[in-house]
Design a protein around this nucleic acid. Structure first.
Lengths: 210, 210
DNA sequence: AAGCGTTTGTGAAAAACTTCACATGAAGGC
DNA sequence: GCCTTCATGTGAAGTTTTTCACAAACGCTT
């Protein structure tokens, strides 16, 4: 049975919807009420037709001859992305990077909250004051189940990544933002997004040489 | 006129080459001398045919019936990516995230070195000891020129990102790894890779809901 | 030295994604 | 109320990327 009449929205489109949403937020801050696909596309770094195609996947919101209502479009994209409700996230691996992510005040504004962190040495001295509790790995599974956590940020060393990922998935986590420099093996229904800084740099360096 | 006989290698392929390189490194650590496209592809999370197509863009290195020599293939990919030589990188914006990146001991191993950081308040008290100098923004341009810096990591607040990017580009930077949550407007010959954590999370959350 | 099993390399097909071209609809002036 | 102007929405065309299918080539065994 097909799940209602909705078309499958391509992964790349979803990615761009997030970008549009941020551009729209800036327009709102500047009290701009209406925007054309041309202007919004420029702000997002894409072509106008692409923006319109992206939106067409889940509705038609524009007014011909005029453009899009900034507030309305924000709402519709937010709705589509399911960003309307605050999602609880946990972080595993409180090293340098993990600690920085914990202190990063940019998530809440965007609809996410890191509600707890886990580390093999939870009581290790850390330079920085943070508000989230740092718990031991043995408490992880029960915490995930109790709080219905569905997403995790993984910033443990490479050697531990797969083991920890397995435990996360067993406990009910469905999405992992992976900062470890290895490719995780996961079941099909689990989603992994990789952020690998060395690869990004390597990538840059290749293209600026040519 | 076509620029020598070399085909243009797609961006995505370059990205995957970096991944293959890391998988090969792990095989080497385990003293594995030969690997089939099937095994390597599995480790990298891609299909075997894709791996072979990717390699075919710049040569043929395998032995039919046997597979690839791990050392040789590592070398060839490294060569292609131009990762053989250490690249100097600067970081701009020493906030939470910037500081974490400075402390991150994963770049050198991969052929990059953050040789200096810049901040509007270079003398601000920071909790952590780091080895790189933190300089003022007024010293940035001369530093870039003197050291022939071609790549920069941008981790300043959104409001400052475009202005700083402009200055980086004027000074000679050709590649920017952008952590600010805005889309930078840059000339065609300048390459920007965006890393936006909120978008990655949003992306995850969308796909685990369906 | 020939045959067998295995794995690469690659043209061709398929799928995914982007861009084009233009008809359609809405707002505002005359 | 009609006409002009503007910008959306969308089928079709184009491009890029992935996957398929299979011939060619190598090592190993006999």
């Amino acid at each position: 049975m097909k799940k209602s009449g909705r078309p499958v929205i391509p992964r790349k489109t979803i990615y761009r919807l997030s970008i549009y949403l941020r551009c729209l937020a800036r327009l709102r801050e500047n009290s701009i009420g209406t925007v054309s696909s041309e202007a919004l596309a420029k702000a997002a770094g894409v072509k106008p037709t692409q923006l319109r195609k992206d939106l067409a996947y889940f509705g038609t919101f524009g007014t011909r001859g005029l453009g899009y209502d900034v507030n309305e479009l924000s709402l519709k994209i937010s709705d589509e992305l399911g960003t309307s409700s605050l999602q609880p996230v946990i972080l595993v691996g409180v090293g340098n990077l993990g600690l920085a992510l914990l202190s990063y005040r940019g998530f809440e504004k965007e609809g996410f909250e890191i509600i707890a962190a886990f580390d093999a040495e939870p009581r290790r001295k850390r330079d920085k004051e943070i508000k989230q509790p740092i718990l031991g790995m043995d408490e992880m599974t029960s915490f995930i189940r109790e709080h219905g956590v569905k997403m995790a940020i993984l910033s443990v060393p490479a050697a531990a990544a797969q083991v920890v990922a397995n435990r996360l998935i067993e406990s009910g986590v469905m999405g992992i933002l992976n900062f470890s420099p290895i490719v995780l093996a996961v079941p099909e229904d689990v989603m992994v997004n990789n952020v690998n800084l060395a690869i990004e740099l390597e990538n840059l360096s290749y293209f600026i040489q040519s």
